[in-house]
């Protein structure tokens, strides 16, 4: 009897330990830090002039009332409204085209579309950074060769699109593969039946395939949403190249600035908790909203 009750815990122990050490503890620690602050006295130079103390919720009020915070949230919202529909639209279009089987280079196209996803975001941003800077950009060369003046991709009017473009370039392939894989699991009889009923390719795509892969679309949407809220690497890499990206351009960049530029771990922890809560709320809110409908077919 005793063995039977103990065994599951023994099997679970390694996972629980790892979870506690690498997920639970850091989260709790971040939460703890967000309620602390350092109080400095006098010039702050001698030993003992710096004490850590409880801060209550002051880090949260400071973080939320920071004049830079709301604009950064707004920027991410605009960025998300741009990236998510464009990226998922392209991914769905490409997946449907590949699945329609009218191309001879399907395998090659799949790999080619997927490949940018294998490029780390930092490298991708560096690559695009070079393409955006007028004096080193082949795009500018081509435009000037054609007698056109090249736009300044990193100017304040275009910089949001420049950053969004990198995310779309890097993310479309992954989402395309997810959707394509879902499309391949659709029983072929279903499509045959639709065809016999006289449905065209477009009708099959929109009225048969898309509804069937709806759960996958929901999943890619949620993943893209989370990635959007956490946009960091692209603007961070482009920042030294231009005047138009500030240190607090996105909320995560503000966390980074507070923690590692201003050495204020406490404010950074508070903002992190806020971002995490928002991510939770948005993702689960969306799932709750569409979940019942989207997943009924799976059950």
């Amino acid at each position: 009897m005793r063995k039977r009750t103990g065994a599951p815990y023994a099997f679970l122990a390694p996972a629980l330990l790892l979870f506690a050490a690498f997920l639970g503890a850091p989260i709790v620690y971040a939460g703890y830090l967000s309620l602390r602050r350092v109080k400095i006295s006098g010039l702050g130079l001698g030993p003992g002039s710096r004490v850590e103390q409880w801060a209550g919720l002051s880090n949260y009020t400071r973080s939320l009332s920071d004049a830079e915070f709301l604009p950064s949230v707004g920027r991410v919202a605009a960025y998300g409204l741009l990236v998510v529909p464009v990226m998922l639209g392209l991914a769905l279009l490409m997946a449907l085209l590949l699945d329609a089987g009218r191309t001879r280079v399907g395998g090659f196209a799949r790999t080619a579309i997927f490949l940018p996803y294998a490029v780390p975001a930092v490298i991708a941003s560096l690559l695009w950074g070079f393409l955006y800077l007028p004096r080193v950009s082949p795009i500018a060369d081509v435009l000037e060769g054609a007698g056109l003046s090249s736009p300044d991709f990193l100017s304040s009017a275009h910089v949001l699109y420049a950053v969004a473009n990198i995310a779309v370039w890097g993310g479309t392939g992954f989402n395309m593969i997810v959707l394509y894989t879902a499309l391949r699991t659709i029983p072929r009889e279903l499509i045959e039946a639709a065809r016999i009923d006289g449905a065209s390719d477009v009708q099959i795509a929109l009225r048969v395939k898309v509804p069937v892969i709806l759960p996958s679309l929901v999943m890619t949407f949620v993943f893209s949403l989370i990635a959007t809220l956490q946009v960091f690497a692209e603007p961070m890499v482009l920042r030294p190249l231009t005047n138009t990206i500030s240190a607090t351009w996105t909320p995560l960049m503000k966390v980074y600035r507070d923690a590692f530029v201003r050495n204020d771990l406490y404010a950074a922890a508070a903002t992190s908790v806020v971002i995490a809560a928002a991510t939770f709320a948005l993702s689960f809110g969306f799932l709750k909203l569409v979940g019942a409908r989207a997943f009924r077919q799976e059950d």
Binding site: F22, L23, P26, I27, Y29, A30, L33, P215, M219, V222, F223, I226, Q230, V255, Y256, A259, L265, A268, A269, S272, I275, A276, T279, F280, S283, L287, F295
Partner: peptide, 21 residues
């Protein structure tokens, strides 16, 4: 599916927290 999502969320939280610790 939901579990994967929770994992992703938790992992991202951990990354944030790890960055601070």
């Amino acid at each position: 599916m939901k579990r994967t999502l929770a994992g992703v969320l938790a992992a991202s939280l951990a990354l944030l927290a790890a960055g601070c610790s």
